[in-house]
Write a protein that binds this DNA or RNA. Structure first.
Lengths: 213, 213
DNA sequence: CCCCTCCTGTGACGTAAATCACGCCCCTTA
DNA sequence: TAAGGGGCGTGATTTACGTCACAGGAGGGG
């Protein structure tokens, strides 16, 4: 489990003094797989740094549609949680642990203070925004231009990478929800992928064989 | 045209000292309508603050598909141009002036320096990221969930707002490109919108009558 | 054992949108 | 005046998906 040495490893780029402060004031919170860290409508009043596990960040609109944004991994942070201060009107953000996870929670007041004091914190915040931004653009590309079969492959690859495992236990219904499609369609596409030898379907899980195209 | 008083009005939130520096080191560049400020593959080595006009920021992929990201208006800045430092691999960003425009260019080295020195600059950078992020999410929502007719309405609204005019001079081919559709489809949808009284079609331009739904 | 629920498979059909194939109008330039 | 190009309108066809309807298996609890 996360210790101060874990934090140190994950955030090597922080100045020693900053690292010490982070360890002092940061509160460790643990979440079980499927737990929500954050739900639509909630006020966000702290920054979240991921120590362990995978956190899925996504959006839900009025009709229950879901947009995947990105997954967060150890050493990364949620950009949204850093905006905090401002109006919380439309930010319909949800965050869910995909596996058992641990995060470090930093009160928002400190963020501004640190930004002025520690170059490495400022860089970290900027880099966080930058990379989330890139990921969001990537997602946008896929939704805008790729057909469902390619998006499904992409989905599988992401999970393979995030979970570091070739076995995915999601139901077709779940996947359909995430890709804004329907179970039936996913079922047919999965069959095709299996026929092509990319994946193998087991009871309650999908085995990834080879996603090269 | 932009003078130091314009800058002052647009960036009131800056500390006086910062404002002075901005005016000293910032270089004003002018662009005519349709000019590119930035094209795919170009290295970005400076931050861009918009003083006048409208700058459209978008992406283009290998197949020439275009994704609209957002429009920038006076007082706003391009978040992408602020990331600068890092690897420029995939950031396929294009920026184009929609009308005659003026921007203030700030060398990237100063950005980091200012962030540590001036609270208001740090806030500005963060706010820039935050709001671009929100806009990108908005775009994502529309692409993912709305039908073309709604997206077309959205497109028209955006232009009306950005250009502060009820007349749009874009050709259907252009609009189709921007919405990743085809001219024929846009043509049919425009006809429908005209029948419903939302717009009126003239020679070479579209008049917006009433976009309420 | 039966019933219930959750997951999956599959055909039939509907629909938004892309694509193809035209033809028309206006403008420019030779 | 002819010729060519750019923008537009419109039917016919195709494609990717979504939706509906229904069936069957696996597990679990009474």
């Amino acid at each position: 489990m996360a210790s101060s040495s874990t934090t140190q490893q994950l955030f090597q780029q922080f100045e020693p003094e900053l690292l010490k402060k982070v360890q002092q004031v940061g509160v460790i919170r643990k979440f079980k797989a499927e737990d929500f860290l954050m739900q639509t409508g909630q006020q966000i009043r702290s920054a979240v740094l991921v120590l362990e596990g995978v956190i899925k960040v996504f959006r839900e609109d009025d009709e229950g549609n879901e947009v995947f944004m990105y997954n967060l991994h150890p050493g990364e942070a949620c950009a949204i949680s850093m905006t905090c201060a401002t109006r919380q009107l439309s930010s319909q953000i949800m965050a869910k642990a995909l596996v058992d996870s641990e995060v470090l929670v930093i009160p928002v007041e400190l963020m501004d203070e640190w930004a002025l004091k520690y170059r490495s914190w400022y860089q970290f915040v900027l880099e966080t925004y930058r990379s989330r931004f890139e990921e969001l653009l990537d997602t946008l590309d896929h939704i805008a231009f790729r057909n469902l079969d390619e998006r499904l492959l992409w989905y599988l690859k992401q999970h393979q990478k995030s979970l570091k495992s070739n076995f995915i236990k999601a139901s077709f219904t779940d996947i359909a929800l995430e890709l804004n499609s329907s179970r039936e369609v996913i079922s047919r596409l999965m069959k095709k992928l299996a026929e092509k030898g990319h994946i193998k379907l087991h009871k309650n899980e999908i085995e990834i064989l080879n996603l090269k195209m």
